[in-house]
Design a protein around this nucleic acid. Structure first.
Lengths: 336, 336
DNA sequence: TCCCCCTATGCATTCGATTTCACTACCGAT
DNA sequence: ATCGGTAGTGAAATCGAATGCATAGGGGGA
C-alpha cells in the first residue's frame, strides 16, 4: 500500500497532525519548526508519499475538479472546446472530468447525478434537458453550474449569439445574390437549431425544408427526398450544423453548377472543395475561456450575479465561394 | 446539505449500519427484514438520499472509474476512440475519466499521478512516455494498466499492427504503379510513426523526406521546403498520420497532375477531393472494445497473464484513386 | 427445559486526511 | 513572582459510508 500520514508520523516520531500541516496546510506549514518540517518532508520523499485525494476531499469538501458534459464528444467542435477548457482550467488549478451524454437525456441525467455524487466542485453542461428544473432535479441546488452553447433561462450561460450568427451568414449569402434556399435543420427542440432556422426562414424564400438528427445521414436523406427536385431553383442550401452539411456536400459534389452551401461551424477541409461554401464560425477559444471565467466566479463564490456571456461569430468562406463572389461583382460592374 | 445515512437512521429509528445495508449492500440487503427495508427505502426516497461516493470509495477502495489518457483529444481518431470506450465501459458498470495529455510528457505524468491519487481503479493510456519504468514511476506498481495505440514492452496493450497497416498501404500503392515517394513522418520517438516510416522506406524509393510534429503545419512546411522540387518525380506522397496529410493536401490541390496521397487513418471528406487518396484505416471500434476487455480482465484480477492485442487495418480509397486505378488497369489490358 | 442456531439489528472501528482544541514551554512585561 | 502571549506540537473529533463482531429474540431439536 501507499504510505499514509500515519506511516510518516511513526517514521519521524511526530504526530499525524504535524505531518499533515507540513505536507498540505499551506499557511499552517509555517507554524511548524524548520527542523521538524525538513524531517517530515524528507521522510515523505523517501517513502514516496502521495496524499489520498478521496480522503482529503471527503474532509475538505473540495475536489478541485470540474465536470464538462458535452452532447457529442466525437464532434470536433466539442472536442476542441473540451480540450481548450481543460487547458484553461488546469492553469487555474482545477482538473477536468469530461463526460459524453451522446445526445441521450437519460445518460445526461445519469452523469449529472454521478458527478454530483462524486463531489465535483462545479459543472459545465451542453444541456439536452431544456429547463432549469430538469437539471436541478439531478444536481444539488447550489452546485456551481454553467450551461454552454445552449442557454437556459435562469442559469449562467456562455454561448454564441445565434441571431448574429444567422444574420452574418445571411448577409454573406445576400452578397452572393442568393434569394431562394433549401433549408436543412437539426432537431427543433435544440434551441440553437431552432433559432438558426427561424432567422434564415425570415430572410430568404425557402423552397424546400428538411429536419432530422444532426448527423451526416440526415443530410443525405434530405438531399434525396426533398432537395434534389428543386436543386436548380435554389441558389443556396443552408444547414444548421456541420455534420448535416457534410451529408449534403457528399451528394452535391457531382452537380454541374452547384448552389452555395451555407453552414454553421466549420466543415473540415472545406477550402479544397469545389462547392462554394460559407461558414458562420463560432469563436471556440472565446467560448472556452468564457466558460472557465464563469465557473471560476461561481466557485470563488463572489456571489455577485453572473451575467450570461454572448459571443459574436464571424463568416469564413472557401475559395470556390470567393471566386463566385468575384464573378458576380464583375458582372455587376460590367452591367454598370 | 444532502442527507446522509445518519439522517435516514434517525428518521427511521434504526441504525446507520442497517440503513447502509439496505441502500447499498447488495447481498446484505436480504438479511434485513422486509418492513425495515421498506421503511428505510421510503425514507431515503423522501429525503432524496444520494450516497457520497467519496466516502464510499475511501472505505471500499473501489471507485468504479477508469481513466483514459489520450495524447490529443482534438484528433478525431482519439475523440472517436474515447467516445466508444466510454460507451463500452458504461455497459460494464464503470465510468470514464477522460484526460488529455496534449502530447506533453509533463502533463502526462501529472495526470498519471492525479488519477492514481484519486483512486481510480484502472488506467488506459496512449503513452508519451516510452518505457514501463517511466510510467510506473508515477503510478502504483499493481495499478491495472493498458496501453493503447503505442505498445510498450511489459505492459498489456491494444494496438493496430503497424507492419500490416504499412504493408497493405504499400500494396495499394504498388497496384497504382507507385515506385518513388515523398515521405512525411511524424516524430520518430513515437513508435507508430517510426515503424510506419521504416516499412515505407523499405518498400519504395524515397526521393524526399521530412519530419516534424504531427500537425497540419508540418505538412505545409514539408511541401514548401522539400517536396515541391520533386513533386513531379514521385508518384506518391505518404504521410504517417491524418493531420500531416491535411497539410500537404491543402497545398497540392492546385497541382495539375497530382501524385497519390497515402495516409494512415482517415482524412475527413476525402472522397470529395480530386487528389487520389488511399488510407490505411484502423478498426476504431475494435480498438475500443479491445481496451475495455483488457482493462476489465485486469480489474477482475483473474490473474492469468493478459496477452497483447494486435488488430488488422484495412485500406480505403477515394473516388479519384479508384478512377486512377481503373485507368492504369485499362492501360495494362490494352498493352496485353 | 436447555442448548444451539438463525434472523435481524446495533455498536464500534476503519478508510486517510483535515482541523479544532488543548497543552507545554518559554519569553518578556508588569 | 505572576500573567499574558506565542510558538510548536499532539490528541481526538470529523467527513460519510462499509463492515466485522456482538447481541437479542425466536424457533427447533434433544
Amino acid at each position: 500500500m501507499s504510505p499514509t500520514l500515519v506511516d510518516i508520523a511513526r517514521e519521524t516520531h511526530t504526530s499525524v497532525s504535524t505531518v499533515s500541516r507540513v505536507l498540505s496546510g499551506g499557511a499552517m506549514a509555517n507554524r511548524i519548526s524548520k527542523e521538524t518540517r525538513q524531517r517530515v518532508q524528507e521522510a515523505a520523499q523517501r517513502l514516496g508519499y502521495r496524499p489520498n485525494l478521496l480522503a482529503r476531499s471527503l474532509r475538505t469538501r473540495r475536489t478541485y475538479t470540474v465536470a464538462l458534459i458535452v452532447s457529442d464528444i466525437a464532434n470536433p467542435f466539442f472536442a476542441q472546446l473540451g480540450s481548450l477548457i481543460e487547458r484553461s482550467l488546469a492553469r487555474h488549478g482545477y482538473s477536468l472530468m469530461l463526460c459524453n451524454s451522446a445526445e441521450d437525456v437519460e445518460k445526461e441525467a445519469d452523469y449529472l447525478r454521478l458527478v454530483a455524487a462524486k463531489g465535483i466542485d462545479g459543472l459545465i453542461v451542453v444541456p439536452l434537458a431544456r429547463t432549469r428544473k430538469q437539471i436541478l432535479q439531478a444536481v444539488p441546488e447550489k452546485m456551481p453550474l454553467v450551461v454552454l452553447d445552449r442557454p437556459i433561462e435562469g442559469i449562467p450561460s456562455v454561448a454564441s449569439d445565434q441571431d448574429q450568427m444567422s444574420h452574418i451568414l445571411s448577409d454573406a449569402l445576400d452578397q452572393a445574390g442568393v434569394k431562394k434556399i433549401a433549408l436543412l435543420c437539426g432537431p427543433q427542440h435544440i434551441i440553437t437549431h431552432r433559432r438558426r432556422c427561424e432567422v434564415l426562414a425570415s430572410r430568404f424564400e425557402v423552397l424546400a425544408r428538411h429536419e432530422g438528427p444532426a448527423q451526416k445521414a440526415t443530410g443525405r436523406e434530405a438531399f434525396d427526398q426533398k432537395f434534389a427536385p428543386v436543386i436548380d431553383k435554389v441558389q443556396a442550401v443552408v444547414c444548421t450544423n456541420n455534420f448535416l452539411a457534410q451529408g449534403v456536400v457528399d451528394l452535391m459534389s457531382d452537380i454541374d453548377n452547384p448552389p452555395v452551401v451555407g453552414v454553421f461551424d466549420e466543415i473540415t477541409m472545406f477550402d479544397l472543395l469545389r462547392i462554394p461554401i460559407v461558414c458562420s464560425m463560432q469563436d471556440i477559444p472565446a467560448l472556452a475561456e468564457g466558460c472557465v471565467t464563469q465557473i471560476l466566479k461561481l466557485l470563488e463564490r463572489t456571489s455577485e450575479p453572473v451575467q450570461p456571456i454572448l459571443l459574436d461569430a464571424r463568416v469564413v468562406t472557401n475559395r470556390a465561394f470567393q471566386r463566385l463572389l468575384a464573378k458576380s461583382n464583375n458582372a455587376a460592374s460590367v452591367a454598370k
